[in-house]
């Protein structure tokens, strides 16, 4: 890393993002504790902490460790994946509207998962589920990149994303119509809306290795993404291997987003909102934005997951619904602001 920084003297110091990361991390830990305190069983804070540390009653231990904790860990993984992928894709495509959900990467991943689930392939091995989701996410990202590589504007990128999401959505419906058991279509529709409730550590284990690998690949891109902000030609002349960078970002987002979608369904707009809110705190450096976006994404998903448990509805709200309720108006505002650039 130090060798590279010497080669790119423009980069300057990265000190300012450190307090930001610490603040986000503290917020994340605080929200995690809050999240552990909310549930159907009325547990006091002492009971929750006792359950978490393994000193409390067995019942509290079971509830906190096996029901509430996997939910928190999944919120970290999903939010981190979506936030970091959003920031990395925005840096790579140099486009503030790039986001796994909007671009159809998430819906392609869920198509892969639905194909595995409904045609019984998961009976062979549970790992088929994240594998298929990641493969489809990878195909979508590659397609998208191929479509928008030459001089992409906001418009072409979003249109390509709309086309990809519609295609994935249509193929998902087709798969459901052709599936051997079409009767529980409602369950799959709900699943597609995204949720992290009632998940266990079995599901966490299913996506954890891929999310970590994906996040690592994305974070490796940070220095090169900072340089790429200057322009492709400038970045190449400064020694950035563009095809390697593209490969890393595409593979990293496909791994992390695909693996989490396989477990949680599609949760939208996190990758759009979080990098946008945090950009000003990192002096608009796409590379430095990666880690704060991962932490911020986790904070947002965790916050949304707490909010939906506070709202008393007969059937618990779906997480994807809550993030869309936050994210869609945000997206519209973003479109309005950049309307002149788009047209």
């Amino acid at each position: 890393m130090t060798r590279r920084r010497r080669r790119w003297p423009l980069l300057g110091s990265r000190r300012p993002s450190l307090p930001l990361n610490l603040v986000l991390l503290a917020l994340l830990l605080l929200l995690s504790l809050v999240s552990l305190c909310f549930g159907d069983a009325p547990l006091s804070l002492a009971e929750v902490i006792g359950g978490l540390l393994g000193t409390g009653a067995e019942e509290a231990q079971l509830i906190v460790r096996q029901i509430r904790l996997p939910r928190v860990v999944l919120a970290w993984l999903v939010g981190g994946s979506l936030g970091a992928s959003g920031a990395a894709l925005q840096g790579l495509l140099r486009n503030p509207l790039a986001e796994p959900g909007l671009l159809g990467i998430s819906s392609s991943a869920s198509l892969g998962a639905v194909l595995m689930l409904y045609f019984g392939v998961t009976a062979l091995s549970p790992w088929m589920l994240p594998a298929a989701a990641m493969l489809f996410a990878l195909l979508a990202t590659l397609t998208l990149h191929g479509l928008t590589r030459a001089g992409s504007t906001n418009l072409t990128l979003i249109l390509a994303g709309v086309a990809l999401s519609s295609l994935a959505g249509a193929l998902t419906s087709l798969a459901l119509n052709l599936a051997p058991n079409p009767t529980d279509a409602q369950d799959i529709v709900l699943w597609l809306l995204g949720s992290i409730s009632d998940r266990s550590f079995a599901e966490v284990r299913l996506c954890l290795p891929f999310v970590l690998a994906g996040l690592l690949l994305l974070l490796l891109c940070a220095p090169a993404l900072d340089v790429l902000a200057l322009g492709e030609a400038e970045a190449s002349s400064l020694g950035v291997d563009l095809s390697r960078l593209r490969g890393l970002v595409i593979l990293g987002s496909a791994l992390s987003v695909g693996a989490t979608v396989a477990v949680t369904g599609t949760i939208g707009f996190v990758g759009l909102v979080v990098p946008h809110l945090l950009r000003r705190f990192v002096a608009y450096r796409p590379g430095r934005l990666l880690l704060p976006s991962a932490l911020g994404g986790a904070v947002l998903v965790l916050g949304a997951d707490i909010a939906l448990r506070l709202i008393d509805t007969p059937r618990e709200l779906m997480l994807g619904v809550v993030t869309a309720l936050i994210g869609a108006p945000f997206f519209l505002a973003l479109v309005l602001r950049s309307r002149r650039d788009m047209l």
Binding site: N181, W191, D198, S200
Partner: peptide, 16 residues
């Protein structure tokens, strides 16, 4: 018994 809609049954698969 039908193992229907595995996606909707995270609840049904929970080890607890």
């Amino acid at each position: 018994d039908q193992a229907r809609s595995p996606a909707g049954s995270a609840y049904g698969r929970h080890p607890l």
